[in-house]
Design a protein around this nucleic acid. Structure first.
Lengths: 243, 243
DNA sequence: TTCTATTGTAACATTTTGTTACAATAATAA
DNA sequence: TTATTATTGTAACAAAATGTTACAATAGAA
């Protein structure tokens, strides 16, 4: 689970559902790499997934949307639950204690933030070019990190990222159009689309077959040509159209 | 969410995680039909999915296993999370109040069982011939109901069943072997396996192609013939072998 | 012995996927 | 202007997977 401003929440967690949190793996795609948003906590060097809590009169999914909007500035985000992390062993209070101390707080032993949390994992897909990452009240930075070069993460957040990635791979074929529309800019080349596919699957695909398959889906509209400045034929630029 | 003996739990829910529950859609396969386990509450005519709560020092998935063992007598069950139901609107305290009254309890207005719950949905797959359904402390019966002829269910339990079914359909191809091994008896005919497949997908498949595909998976071992008494060729009986 | 329903599998057609090949072309260099 | 280069779009063919039809093999009943 993760964290918001304690003064916004109150010292006893009043107004929020107790023991329940959510963590989000927010994916973006840039320079042919999958990246995720991470928070770095003040004075601690600890990295964590963006997370949040659920208000007493708020739907669970609405809480996730609210938190995502706070972290990215985007209100219309593709997001989905993928797993609930509910092992009791996952909650080690020590990192949270450090973070609170680093923020000038002196947590009591049974401070609500230090108790056990069950956390609902969400993954979100955002257009890298549109998101404006914003740190939360306890963190210095909120930034993109290449999935292949993540820093060490708090608690079980590494496992959460891994599970999110597995979920992406399993569902890619079924969800491709929705996902690509969320992760890519409005227009893109076939090579960019293929690169996204390859990055998620972590394997190379045959160019010819990929193009044939994508075009046969009937969801791509060819717009015009893109002159990249490279010494070669200019690729077409596509956009998704409602199927 | 669902319910256990209130005296086993205590009137204030002490010893259990607050606000968090789990509901299970327990599937069995019998006479070419998918069935699920439902509880019928004493003196109320209300039907509900088996559910439970999480002990303070218990892993979430362990709580699900404990509850499934209590309801079916089986300890080694295939089960998986599929969704968290966290809308605030889902929790209507009225049915629960009826159930408590029908059990001779006089619930206070803010009794913990009447407050909002977020519930983790699990589906489980069991061998119909091995499960021994047992009611919980508040219910009269725990029994199998044909998926096509379910009684009216409490709260949003109908939607939970629907979502579980969708999850089955989406994942059938990927999980077939695990699932069939859980749902079917140790040995079965090709027709039975096909019937299971058809029932989950809710569509007819071609017999020839189905047989070819199943055999090509290399996970079926042909045991011997089954003389059913029917006036026709006797089918082979198969069993799954580790791939 | 004939008949019926069902099974196991072969045979063929169709579709999808994998692979190779090649012409088209945008910039660059000669 | 004319090669040269890297990349693109698509055709062409091969291989594999899937859809469909057909038929011989039976276990029992008539």
């Amino acid at each position: 689970m993760s964290h918001q401003s304690p003064d916004a929440i109150g010292p006893d967690g009043a107004g929020y559902l107790p023991g329940l949190a959510l963590d989000a793996v927010i994916f973006g795609f840039h320079e042919n790499q999958l990246r995720i948003l991470l928070l770095e906590y003040r004075n601690t060097g600890l990295f964590a997934l963006p997370g949040g809590f659920i208000r007493e009169h708020e739907d669970l999914n609405a809480a996730a949307r609210r938190m995502l909007a706070e972290r990215t500035g985007l209100s219309d985000i593709y997001l989905e639950q993928f797993y609930v992390f509910g092992d009791q062993a996952r909650y080690d209070p020590e990192p949270m204690r450090s973070i609170m101390r680093a923020n000038g707080l002196t947590p009591t032993d049974n401070h609500w933030l230090l108790r056990r949390f069950v956390s609902v994992g969400y993954y979100a897909l955002v257009d890298f070019t549109k998101a404006v990452p914003r740190p939360d009240a306890l963190s210095d930075s909120c930034d993109w990190y290449d999935l292949n070069r993540l820093p060490a993460l708090m608690q079980d957040h590494q496992a959460i990222v891994q599970k999110a990635l597995e979920t992406l791979r399993i569902n890619l074929d079924r969800k491709l159009v929705e996902w690509a529309a969320s992760l890519l800019p409005d227009t893109f080349t076939m090579a960019e689309l293929q690169s996204l596919y390859e990055t998620i699957l972590n394997e190379k695909l045959h160019r010819s077959g990929f193009q044939r398959k994508m075009l046969s889906l009937g969801v791509l509209e060819r717009i015009d040509k893109k002159y990249t400045g490279g010494a070669h034929k200019a690729p077409y630029v596509y956009r998704f159209v409602a199927g």
